[in-house]
């Protein structure tokens, strides 16, 4: 018994190591590449640790001030999207959880179905509308577009979460004469904090990941977001300048990873709570 448990432990340690290798090695390789000079980059066998690390790729990158603008735009847009998504999806999710109405499942299905088509096939119609409403080259417009791509799953996840909160509390508050909004804001929402965290993180990452919306709806350098900026500078016509590409990749993920490490306490518990209920 004891021995088989030890074998189990060793096996699961090995499996865990394999997982970590798969998930983390590419990141290490990215980081390493960004510190290699082109003269050693393509050498085989490769250098597992740079014999002569160079920072020239970083210097070149940061000499181009526009990248700081891209970061700022991306952060701003992602935060705004998260905030709007949280607001709209909490309300809608509460409605779907607490009220029975005709065509409810049809409505829910329609909401989900808006996420089923890829953005590429909607580009022309989307652009035409944005043009008509003067929302092009406007970060607010981009926030609206990204919000709608986050909303359906967020509504669904938060609805599942609300479903798990007993309704008794709300009923007793109602008897005490609290208004419906009062109940939602003061009684239900505080209980939902972990759920809000999980959809917040979900929407933040989704909007941080966006490429097609931002490249279509925004074409001024000063308003561009990071992914579009990376594509335009580094997935170009002429060559794969791998060390420069990896450098910009590293710098683009460091701030957001730090943010996540900072929030990790909330995150794990947030995701924990958000996913389970129901």
């Amino acid at each position: 018994m004891n021995r088989s448990r030890r074998i189990n432990g060793v096996v699961s340690a090995l499996i865990l190591a394999a997982f970590l290798l798969f998930l983390l090695f590419p990141l290490y390789w990215m980081l390493l590449t960004s510190f290699k000079d082109n003269s050693v980059l393509f050498k085989l066998p490769p250098e597992w640790w740079p014999s002569n690390p160079v920072t020239s790729h970083y210097e070149k990158l940061f000499a181009d001030k526009v990248f700081l603008t891209y970061y700022r735009n991306s952060l701003l847009v992602s935060f705004c999207t998260t905030a709007v998504t949280l607001l709209a999806s909490t309300f809608a999710g509460y409605g779907f959880s607490r009220f029975q109405f005709r065509f409810k499942s049809l409505a829910m299905m329609s909401i989900l179905s808006t996420q089923m088509l890829p953005v590429v096939s909607l580009l022309i119609a989307l652009y035409t509308m944005y043009n008509n409403y003067g929302l092009l080259n406007n970060r607010g417009g981009l926030v609206i577009a990204l919000t709608t791509s986050c909303l359906p799953f967020s509504i669904w996840m938060i609805k599942v979460f609300f479903d798990g909160i007993p309704i008794d509390l709300e009923e007793s508050a109602k008897i005490d004469g609290a208004s419906r909004f009062g109940i939602l804001l003061r009684i239900v929402l505080p209980l939902t904090k972990p759920g809000l965290f999980s959809i917040g993180i979900y929407s933040f990452i989704l909007s941080w990941d966006d490429f097609l919306y931002s490249i279509t709806l925004i074409n001024q350098d000063a308003l561009r977001s990071l992914n579009a900026g990376i594509a335009i500078r580094y997935i170009g016509e002429l060559s794969y300048d791998w060390s420069s590409i990896m450098t910009v990749c590293v710098t683009s993920i460091v701030p957001i990873s730090l943010l996540f490490l900072f929030f990790q306490k909330y995150m794990v518990s947030g995701l924990t709570a958000g996913a389970v209920k129901g």
Binding site: L76, V77, C80, A83, V84, N137, N138, R139, G140, G141, L142, V143, Q220, A222, L223
Partner: peptide, 10 residues
């Protein structure tokens, strides 16, 4: 939201 909107008015 206002920050997003006002800066993007271009």
């Amino acid at each position: 939201l206002t920050a997003c909107g006002s800066n993007g008015n271009n």
